[in-house]
Every structure is written in C-alpha cells, then in structure tokens.
Simulated scan of single mutants.
Amino acid sequence: MKSNAPARQAGARGHRLAALLTDTFWGRLTLRATALAIVLIAWQMAGDDSVALLFPTATRTFQAFIELMADGRLPLGLLVTGQALLAGFAIIIGIGVPLGILIARFPLVDRTVSPYFTFLVAVPIIAIVPVVQALLGLTFAARVTVIVLFGISYVVINSAIAVRRVKPELIEMAASFGARRLAILTQVVLPAAVPGIMTGARLALGQALIGMVVAELTIVGAGVGSLIAELQGRFKVAAVLAVAMTIVLIGLCLLSLVEMLERRLNRWSLTK
C-alpha cells in the first residue's frame, strides 16, 4: 500500500496543476500564451521570405501589419467594417432573443417561424448573398443584412431551447405564490435560460464575423474587404495575411468578452 502513496500524491499534484491552469484567469492566460508562442515559432519556421509570393514568415507578416497601421489604411478599414458588425450583431441579439422566447412560449409562433430559421441553418448563407445584393444593392444595409442572416438563427434556436428547458416546477412554484406572467418571465425563466441564450450569442458572434467578411468580399469592397481586394491585386501576400490575422485576433477578443459576460450572467442566474 505504501508503494502506491507517491503515485497517488503525484496524481493529486497533477490534478491540482490542471485545475490551476484551467479554472483561473492567469492559468488560462498562461495556456493561451504558450499555445500562441508555439504557433508563432512553427509559423516562423514554415515561412519563406526569399520570394515575396511565398508563404511569409511571422516577422514579415508583422512588419506588413506595422506598415498598414502606420499609413492608416488598416485602422480605417476596421472602423468601417466594425460599424456593420456592431449594427448586425445588435440586431441579432435584439430580435433573436425575444423571438426565441416567443417561439418557446407560444406554439403558434413556433409552427409559423421556426422552419425559416431551420432553413437558415441548413442552407449555406453565401448562396443567398446575391439575392440580398439584388434587393438592397451595394449598400450598408445589404452588408448588415448578410451579417444578420449568418448569425440570427443560432440565437433564436438556442434561446428557444433554453427557455423550453426551464424546469416546469420553478414556473409552477412562482405561479403558486401569485407571480404574474411578466414576473415569471423576468425573474424565473430568463435567469434559468441565461446559459443557453449566451451560448447562442457566442455562436452567433462567430457566424457574424464570417458574414462580415463574406459581405465585404462579395457585395461591396468596403472596410477590410476593400483593403484585402487591393492587396491581393498587388500580390502583397504578407499584407493580406496581416489583415486576415488581425480579423482573427479581433474575433478572439470579442469571443473572450462574450465568455466573460456569460460567466457573470451565469452567476446572476444562479443567485435567482
């Protein structure tokens, strides 16, 4: 029995270390920084700067990023693109969450509306982009519409599922104490459905980022879409990759913010 004690102690230390790295902010930051360092080293080793058209190294890509930031083209493109993304995501949340709640609470709304959002999930949205362009033209509204189409179904469906999964006994208990429908919705149903709603918001944000790029590359060259098209035409491979990596990093930052908000709202839901 004594011979197994060191192994058990080593296993316990391993579990504590794993918990420290995954359950704390600094632990998660350390893991992500380590993963990023490994990717950058591999990228630097895989790149080739001998010819401009070859896959660039991380250092050449970073130099291209500095140049784009210095001449102001990348900040301006991100500003223009960010406006469409912000407007589209606001519409996704503002319409998607209430609509998901209505679908879950009213069977008539469910039978009427749900098939359309199932269609949006099943069909590649890029196939609908020409229709949006024909209806709205080369406008800001067209870009926002594409972003909304890419992401809204995830919020609607996840919100509806989350509301349906609220335990009936919680609603019955609140009703037995005389709570009205609005109070049951705001104080019982929504707090219990927060995890599912936030999962839908996180998925929708990822899809909205994809829709943002698709809209600018297919409908109208605006923002980073215009910048990418210009750089591609001039065969600036490192600069194109720098813009793409900037979009990826911004997307990761936005997703991290949504995750932080999700954890805060989850704590609020557990206190209700």
Rank of each mutant, 00 (worst) to 15 (best):
residue 231 L to G: 02
residue 23 D to S: 08
residue 92 I to T: 09
residue 193 A to L: 02
residue 167 K to V: 09
residue 19 A to W: 03
residue 209 L to V: 14
residue 28 R to G: 07
residue 233 G to N: 14
residue 132 V to D: 14
residue 225 G to W: 01
residue 210 I to V: 15
residue 253 C to R: 03
residue 21 L to H: 05
residue 153 S to R: 02
residue 38 I to C: 10
residue 236 K to H: 06
residue 1 M to N: 08
residue 208 A to P: 03
residue 139 T to W: 00
residue 263 R to E: 13
residue 140 F to A: 13
residue 101 I to Q: 10
residue 220 V to F: 00
residue 224 V to D: 10
residue 209 L to G: 07
residue 114 S to H: 03
residue 230 E to F: 00
residue 58 A to T: 10
residue 67 E to L: 05
residue 175 A to I: 01
residue 66 I to C: 09
residue 138 L to G: 02
residue 46 A to H: 05
residue 231 L to M: 08
residue 13 R to V: 10
residue 41 I to T: 13
residue 270 L to Q: 15
residue 168 P to R: 06
residue 137 G to T: 11
residue 158 N to Q: 14
residue 214 V to Y: 02
residue 82 G to T: 10
residue 151 G to H: 04
residue 174 A to I: 05
residue 195 P to C: 06
residue 258 V to G: 07
residue 261 L to E: 10
residue 207 Q to K: 12
residue 43 W to P: 12
residue 2 K to D: 13
residue 233 G to M: 07
residue 145 T to M: 10
residue 44 Q to D: 12
residue 39 V to L: 14
residue 42 A to Q: 11
residue 179 A to N: 05
residue 248 V to H: 03
residue 173 M to D: 08
residue 167 K to H: 11
residue 47 G to Y: 03
residue 150 F to D: 15
residue 265 L to Q: 11
residue 96 G to Y: 02
residue 228 I to A: 07
residue 2 K to A: 13
residue 35 A to W: 00
residue 240 V to A: 08
residue 214 V to L: 08
residue 248 V to M: 12
residue 236 K to W: 01
residue 26 W to Q: 15
residue 269 S to E: 12
residue 227 L to V: 09
residue 93 I to H: 02
residue 63 Q to M: 07
residue 170 L to C: 02
residue 179 A to E: 05
residue 50 S to K: 10
residue 108 L to A: 14
residue 186 T to F: 04
residue 236 K to A: 14
residue 166 V to K: 04
residue 120 L to P: 05
residue 145 T to D: 07
residue 187 Q to R: 12
residue 147 I to Q: 08
residue 157 I to P: 03
residue 4 N to H: 04
residue 42 A to E: 14
residue 2 K to S: 10
residue 148 V to T: 11
residue 12 A to Q: 14
residue 59 T to M: 08
residue 124 P to V: 08
residue 165 R to V: 02
residue 270 L to R: 13
residue 112 T to L: 15
residue 5 A to C: 04
residue 75 P to A: 06
residue 146 V to Y: 01
residue 86 L to Q: 06
residue 243 V to P: 05
residue 184 I to A: 01
residue 153 S to T: 07
residue 271 T to L: 08
residue 231 L to D: 07
residue 9 Q to S: 10
residue 189 V to A: 08
